[in-house]
Design a protein around this nucleic acid. Structure first.
Lengths: 162, 162
DNA sequence: CTTATAAGTCTTGAAAAGGAACTGAGTCAA
DNA sequence: TTGACTCAGTTCCTTTTCAAGACTTATAAG
């Protein structure tokens, strides 16, 4: 299967990964969350090839995850800022970071600490249920195809828990 | 920067993406969460090239995210099952799925519904704080380098909120 | 013997990434 | 008014990875 055709897939994860699932995009977004905004700053921070960076930023803008905002005139130059859609990726991103903290920690502990400004404490992310507000674990979830979805397609839509 | 050198990076996200950050791995893991376990089933479900699938499964086993369990003798054949470390990726995965549901939804609604077995309701994932149990939003978090970490390296470690 | 099954490995051509040099619009300083 | 500098890319060439399908190995069944 060619990668582009992923965006035609029924599965939300496939469609999501068609946009942000390549090797660099999530690292670019991490920097964006850390308030990196300019081309050269992304380049210096990541060590990414300029051609690839340029292409990824354009894709993220095209998908409305970043927006290009002028920060000076003569010559007009733009910086890249997270949109609301981009900010919505935060739970996924921080979950990946905390997974790395947990499973690849060194003796020094996690390299970056995250403080929840509302309560003032360093925290780990906890996945909870929008309905009962309790923590959710992988084996307590049953996935099933929604009815209109199952009418149209997908062989794995009928699969069971996750 | 070469991709392999990512695993030497200080940042947990970089180290995480060095393992699961390629185009296919998260889709393989999604299938694993949906109880796909065998080589041919992954191949049929994903349409992935066999060489790439073989390589990715081996990498996931090497990193302890999947384990290879024999399911028959003569000839001995193995299936791939999520380890506890693999199961820990569920929050990141479901967050990505729900992001896709929200931002690429069709008129039919999300293609797959997730039911929280403990409360019996279809749910969305909510990121909460391990300390105060309240929902966390991107702009309410301040990231900072931990002290031992900042002694060793990283120019972005000093960066601000996320 | 022939076919079938499962889980790979090998080969080949195409696509993407890495890396360095180049471009363009404009500033500043001499 | 020339020359150096800045930022944000673009171009070009090489290296790496990927897609697709044929081939391999171990075994059972007919």
């Amino acid at each position: 299967m060619r990668w582009e055709s992923l965006s035609d897939e029924h599965c939300s994860l496939a469609r999501t990964l068609a946009v942000i699932g390549d090797r660099w995009t999530l690292l670019i977004l991490r920097d964006a969350f850390l308030r990196v905004r300019r081309f050269e700053d992304f380049e210096n921070s990541l060590g990414i090839a300029r051609r690839v960076l340029s292409e990824r930023l354009a894709l993220l803008v095209e998908h409305g995850i970043l927006s290009k905002v002028p920060y000076q005139e003569r010559p007009t130059r733009y910086e890249y800022r997270l949109t609301d859609k981009g900010l919505d990726l935060y739970p996924a991103l921080i979950s990946l970071v905390h997974w790395g903290d947990k499973h690849y920690a060194t003796k020094d502990g996690p390299p970056v600490l995250h403080r929840h400004l509302k309560c003032g404490h360093d925290f780990r992310s906890v996945l909870t249920c929008s309905q009962c507000a309790k923590p959710v674990h992988a084996r307590e979830v049953a996935a099933r195809a929604s009815i209109p979805a199952s009418r149209s397609r997908s062989r794995r839509a009928a699969a069971s828990p996750g």
